[in-house]
């Protein structure tokens, strides 16, 4: 139990700081460059991303586990109605995953937008303009793909991620995105007052600043293994959980 909690904690820290979605994996660069002019809009965008990424993670985890992965429960049962059970047990729909994910993300964004507009008008006012943009935010699809690789890509079915881990990764990634974009917006507000050489004005200088930020975030490298060592209660537990550390990275 305690090792599970530590695992969850480290997945969250890893997604938010160590392997920051924007500064390490380069996903969500478009809003990072486009919507980082003011701190308030950057924060609004970040909140909208956290909101949608959590929903997308739950949906993609459920779809992958019950429908897409080889021999998944739901697709096996449905196929079992038409073909003999031993044929149905070998069903593998992973090839459809990209189409299913992007469809799930864009439709859930639509539904979230309608729901929020109907029931939470103030929240809609705050997030509204950013919600449609998020459909094409790579960070969301990237989170879905990582979750898929942690479910279908593992050798031992017992190592497959559960919903808690998937959700932690997604929310951690969303928080990491928010941290990066808010820091960037703060720097850009100051940059507007600086005398930047003309060809570098705008995006070029922002990218160079992002490079320096990314350099700063590289300082977190290795924090996760250090934390894991420090928090593990007994040596035998360390030996038992070590493979998960590899998988959790």
């Amino acid at each position: 139990m305690i090792s599970y909690l530590i695992d969850i904690f480290l997945i969250g820290i890893g997604a938010a700081l160590i392997n920051n979605f924007v500064l390490y994996y380069f996903v969500g660069i478009c809003p990072f460059v486009g919507v980082s002019r003011k701190i308030s809009t950057a924060f609004g965008m970040g909140c909208a991303v956290i909101f949608v990424i959590a929903i997308a993670a739950v949906i993609s985890w459920a779809i992958t586990t019950y429908v897409l992965m080889p021999g998944a429960l739901l697709s096996r049962t449905v196929a079992g109605l038409f073909v003999p059970p031993e044929t149905a047990a070998g069903i593998d729909l992973t090839i459809l995953s990209y189409i299913v994910y992007i469809f799930a993300i864009s439709s859930s964004v639509q539904f979230v937008e309608m729901y929020v507009r109907k029931f939470f008008p103030p929240l809609y006012k705050a997030l509204g303009v950013y919600l449609p943009l998020i459909t094409t935010n790579c960070a969301i699809l990237f989170a879905c793909l990582v979750i898929m690789s942690k479910i279908t890509g593992v050798d031992n079915p017992a190592d497959a991620w559960d919903l808690g881990r998937a959700l932690t990764l997604a929310v951690g990634g969303g928080i990491g995105f928010t941290i990066a974009i808010v820091i960037m917006a703060g720097i850009r507000e100051e940059l507007d007052l600086c005398d930047v050489p003309k060809p570098f004005k705008g995006v070029a200088i922002s990218l160079i600043v992002a490079g320096i930020l990314s350099l700063g975030f590289m300082g977190f490298t290795g924090v996760d293994s250090g934390l894991r060592k420090a928090m593990m209660p007994k040596p035998e537990v360390v030996a038992q959980v070590q493979p998960e550390a590899e998988a959790g990275k």
Partner: peptide
């Protein structure tokens, strides 16, 4: 080594973008 790590991508692209802007200006 920093050039093949993530920060190098941002720095290289930022500098090249500035260069392209300067040339076209």
């Amino acid at each position: 080594v920093i050039m093949v790590l993530p920060p190098g991508a941002f720095l290289t692209f930022g500098l090249l973008l500035g260069l392209v802007n300067w040339y076209s200006d």
